[in-house]
Design a protein around this nucleic acid. Structure first.
Lengths: 346, 346
DNA sequence: ATGAAAGCGCTAACAG
DNA sequence: CTGTTAGCGCTTTCAT
């Protein structure tokens, strides 16, 4: 397909220095005269040289690889916006850090998911792992992974926060805040469609909702809770059921935007007007919340930043920052759009 | 973090054979007695050995890397569903082929996008490249890339089909088919919101629409054409303008689902009912088309399969299949949902 | 059918 | 500041 690529020795010869010096220049090492440095870079450009990453990894014993692991199925495209946002954020930070990103999708429910993750580290020689929910909630998995390489967690449960670095919003507060928003609008009768129960971060959102309800002097047990799974479909099914009841809730809070979109869809099908007849809220503030009609009131989560911070934490760790595991809370924000309003306006 | 990993020599010693034999077993090579083969595999398992991919690449001179290149910005998440589908399809086939996928996002409008793509090949030692639109339409880029490594194109324009392998639906026929669907419903007055003009595959959809209109005895020049860019936003803006005209069209065809979602959103904002007052169609059949209300009539494109076939073509090429460039047409299908119906029903 | 030897291109001590 | 010397773990001739 093409001629032999120039090697580091070609550059050394071309610029009249030793191979080690070229290596130093390439790696921004110390102890090289500026003059020589320039000469070497000139040779690099003129020969159109670029280091062979495989050779570098082998020699340095460091692959530079970071894996981003999602719990999903290769067949499905669950929460495309959610995963894309994380991936983009991770990719960008990897670029900055001079590392490479491997994206991996591991079946949610696979019994040997732990094995699959560990195999990924082993087989690819990954040096860092970004674990997303619900993997980031699993102390056993996190412990096993952390024994093999650096680990950073997206939205980890409190139980795993001591085991590895982590980034996330205060999910409980996020739930509390949306619920307060609805209470302020006058709502008193709520339903909450949860995410998969294994995703603890989403479960904490419900706790926040309950706290808000309590703080308003209402009975938190009166919040109807339905077990969803983050999908559009689960939003559809549960909302259909809820709206078939004798006294449907006036507001449905959903564990994420996809679920809320499903709820919205059912409301339309029944010719209800949102928010006059029913308020609906999501979580995440993915682009989906602006795409549906009416645009969703939701809780913003800075997903790209979170992934970037996770990669950054890994990079720090890999270059020898020896602190204990640190959890970084990033700010969330209730974004009020048109899917929420005062109840009974219809 | 952990002890030294076992190397091929450890396995050789453990199973009492030479290093070369182990390598043969690992690579399914010939000339190994079944008995020995079994013994080696047993050692591999018992030592929990796995090959070091970096060392293998270096020694064999083959990285096993395939890059999937998107024209987009790291900041934006354009067509998340579209890119996710392609990525998932490519990932799955890479798994089958024992190769690794590198996903790359190159700024659309970057003047040195060609350089960026070529640098990717050079710097990462990629052996194969999957190019998506509009990169797959650019003969200069494709030619330059094909000189460096194997290339496969997603939805290439006719002009690039002779330069590398390609996969895609018949876009012209897709446009024709949706338009026929609307004509059959009784529509006579159309608007078409295009994608970026550099994406030739989307432009061919418009040609198909025009052909359908002509074949119905209507003037194809009467189709109002608006220059969009595949985004939700462009759907919003153009639809707002269209519906402000004295005689708005009865049907708006969009270059993709995102744009159609934007059109839908405007219709809702104006309290028009879809499809009674206005029919709207998309293209791609991403999950978005089922998420919006009403669900979109659209043209299905088997994106995951397309990406898989592209990777497969690369793999064949890399293992020495010396045919000329082959373009594979995959089937499209009009999916009729509720965003299209007879005009004037409102 | 198997093994010995020679690198792949690079980084990393260690000498100067 | 700079070069010399060893490998990193694997595949690949080439003998046997």
């Amino acid at each position: 397909m093409h001629a032999r690529r120039p090697t580091i020795d070609d550059v050394a010869r071309h610029s009249g220095v030793g191979r080690t010096t070229v290596s130093r220049v390439l790696n921004d090492g110390p102890n090289v005269r500026p003059e020589v440095r320039d000469r070497v870079w000139a040779s690099v450009r003129s020969l159109n040289y670029s280091v062979n990453p495989q050779a570098r990894s082998l020699a340095s014993g460091s692959s530079g690889l970071i894996a981003l692991v999602f719990a999903s199925d290769l067949e499905a495209q669950p929460n495309s916006f959610y995963t894309s946002a994380l991936e983009l954020g991770a990719l960008r930070e990897c670029l900055v850090q001079g590392r490479h990103l491997l994206t991996h999708h591991v079946p949610q429910d696979s019994p040997d998911r732990k094995r699959q993750v560990l195999d990924l580290i082993r087989a690819q020689r990954c040096q860092g792992l970004v674990l997303t929910p619900p993997f980031s909630d699993d102390p056993e998995l996190v412990t096993a992974a952390a024994a093999q390489c650096a680990v950073a967690l997206i939205s980890p449960a409190p139980a795993t926060r001591g085991l590895a670095d982590g980034v996330g919003v205060d999910d409980e507060a996020g739930g509390y805040d949306v619920a307060r928003h609805l209470l302020a609008l006058g709502h008193r009768d709520f339903a909450y469609i949860t995410g998969l129960e294994s995703h603890l971060s989403a479960a904490r959102r419900l706790e926040g909702v309950r706290r808000a309800v309590s703080s308003h002097g209402l009975d938190p047990a009166a919040v109807r809770v339905l077990a969803g799974d983050f999908t559009f479909r689960s939003g559809v099914e549960h909302t259909r059921r809820l709206l078939g009841e004798a006294t449907p809730p006036t507001a449905i809070l959903c564990a994420n935007d996809d679920t809320a979109a499903g709820a919205l869809s059912v409301a339309h099908g029944l010719h209800l007007s949102v928010p006059a007849d029913l308020s609906i809220t999501g979580f995440d503030d993915t682009p989906m919340s602006e795409i549906v009609w009416p645009p969703l009131t939701t809780v913003h989560q800075p997903l790209k930043d979170m992934a970037g911070l996770a990669v950054n934490a890994l990079a720090r760790r890999l270059t020898g920052d020896g602190d204990g595991p640190r959890f970084e809370t990033v700010p969330h924000k209730v974004i009020v759009r048109e899917s929420s309003g005062p109840p009974g306006a219809g």
